[in-house]
Write a protein that binds this DNA or RNA. Sequence first.
DNA 1: CTTATGATTTCCT
DNA 2: GGAAATCATAAGC
Length: 219
Amino acid sequence: MGASLTPHSTPPGVLGRSFYDRNVLAVARDLLGCVVRHRTPAGVVGVRLSEVEAYAGESDPGSHAFRGPTPRTQVMFGEAGHAYVYFSYGMHWCVNLVCGPVGTASAVLLRAGEVVEGLDLARSRRPAARKDVDLARGPARLTQALAVDRAQDGVDVCSGSSLEVVAGQPVPDSAVVWGPRVGVAGAGAPTPWRVSLVNDPTVSAYRVGGRRSPGKRST
DNA sequence: CTTATGATTTCCT
DNA sequence: GGAAATCATAAGC
């Protein structure tokens, strides 16, 4: 990524379709520093993204799209700029933004960020978070703080819906770091697909050997 | 500080 | 039936 993607020259305001309709790695990088906003009857919460992760369509073994379209992954194969929300580990919701032309099935997972709007509301939704930096530090925590769930699956974030992404200050390459995936089965993914802001306290912790091996269950 | 483990639903085979 | 793009908590150092 040496040949740096230009820091996004996106006009201020809500990111439009063209922002998402391009290479998934470029979109991931440019999403850093942008603010995801979700408006509900209870109010608005905004999260400034500090960590995201790219999933590169059907050719990517780590992607839900790897085995082709299914009812669950249908949204990923559709138009860029829509939210793909999936349920994970029996209790969590995670949100992606679909990228690239129709049929590409690539998407960016929103992994972590800093709550910059609606702090009190976010706190009330995340009672377990002791510190504000933990409010949206992790993909499922982020959706919890934003109150994003199944209802937002397939939502177009480019057409004035309650869920949208607003351009932020451009982030220089020196403030960005690329790393490996976290928590994905079939590790050893060759490409660093995770991008985050350097020295940002809201970036989720990367545990080297800290994961429990899946499939091992003591009854 | 680090490491280990249960919780609990959805989707695919 | 079993795995899954995780988190909160408990226990050990």
